[in-house]
């Protein structure tokens, strides 16, 4: 057994898994506060990464400025998407809401392909790329950056929902919309804010992933990979999203290890999470931390 490879893959899994966790967190944020299952989460990553890339390469701006422009754009973008496309869908059956987000995902994916092309583009050198040795293992600096980013985002989310006014308003809205609005919380503002935050944080995750692997269409597939993570963690639990993301990330890499060492079937890496997803849905559909649906007649 190749212990070194196993260890390397596990660490990779943890790092990628934490990024999945951040994206899962954004997904859960939208689901919890607005009851929308966002199939276009991957496109937030894609659009954010491309916009940032365009400001760096086409406009030749310094990274910090491009980053701020991207964040501002994504905030506006999230608010507009919610106001134009999802506000009219409030109260519609869940199938329709899902289909609207699928339509959005299709539209923006094709739009990005049209504007930026299908081939992967790499980011210009923003930070010094080098590898650091930690405990005998070579870890790329970009990975460490993404690790720090993930922890920062999680801490930020924790602070936001624990102490900030808006975060508390969001939790109240998620708990009961009617009660929240009767207490003076503007529900439409909360909806807009949750889409804006989700788009912004997802875009940042997209930029981080783009720096490691290059920006391409593949980024939008992350939005689909997030589903096993959120279902495993429980659809309406932010902690669950993070835990699910880490588990799926590690599992992916373990599947890669088993595949390359023993089975040699190839491509197990991408498909394993979906088998896990089916198993979870068959036995524990509400995930590890999700609240069980109780229906009254």
């Amino acid at each position: 057994m190749n212990t070194e490879l196993l260890l390397q893959l596990t660490i990779n899994g943890l790092i990628v898994g934490l990024l999945y966790g951040v994206i899962a967190m954004c997904f859960v944020l939208i689901y919890k506060s607005t009851q929308v299952v966002n199939f276009a989460q991957g496109e937030f990553l894609l659009i954010g990464a491309w916009i940032c890339w365009a400001t760096l390469v086409w406009l030749q701006l310094p990274f910090w400025l491009g980053f701020i422009i991207t964040l501002a754009f994504m905030t506006l973008f999230g608010i507009l998407i919610q106001a134009i496309f999802l506000k009219p869908m409030i109260g519609e059956p869940i199938i329709s809401v899902i289909m609207v987000t699928i339509g959005l995902s299709m539209f923006f994916q094709a739009l990005m392909k049209w504007i930026f092309g299908v081939s992967a583009q790499s980011y210009p050198q923003v930070f010094e790329t080098s590898t650091v040795t930690i405990g005998g293992l070579n870890v790329e600096l970009a990975y460490i950056m993404s690790l720090i980013f993930s922890f920062l985002m999680m801490a930020g989310f924790y602070w936001f929902f624990r102490y900030s006014r808006m975060g508390l308003a969001m939790r109240a809205t998620a708990f009961d919309q009617q009660v929240a609005s009767s207490l003076g919380i503007s529900v439409s503002k909360v909806f807009a804010a949750s889409w804006a935050i989700s788009a912004m944080v997802s875009a940042t995750a997209g930029i981080v992933m783009g720096m490691v692997n290059g920006v391409s269409d593949a980024l939008s597939f992350i939005g689909i990979k997030v589903f096993p993570a959120v279902i495993l963690g429980g659809l309406d639990s932010i902690v669950g999203g993070v835990v699910g993301g880490v588990i799926i990330g590690v599992l992916e890499n373990l599947a890669e290890f088993i595949d390359s060492q023993y089975l040699h079937v190839g491509n197990l890496y991408t498909i394993a999470p979906f088998y896990v997803l089916l198993i979870i849905l068959a036995f524990k559909p509400y995930g590890l931390f999700g609240t069980k649906d109780i229906e009254r007649i």
Binding site: F85, M89, E92, S96, M99, V100, I102, G103, L104, S105, M106, F107, F108, Q109, A110, L111, K113, W114
Partner: peptide, 15 residues
């Protein structure tokens, strides 16, 4: 791409 965009848009508009 136009075709994909059109289908996506048509889904949203119809809904």
């Amino acid at each position: 791409y136009f075709k994909e965009m059109a289908i996506g848009l048509v889904i949203i508009l119809f809904l």
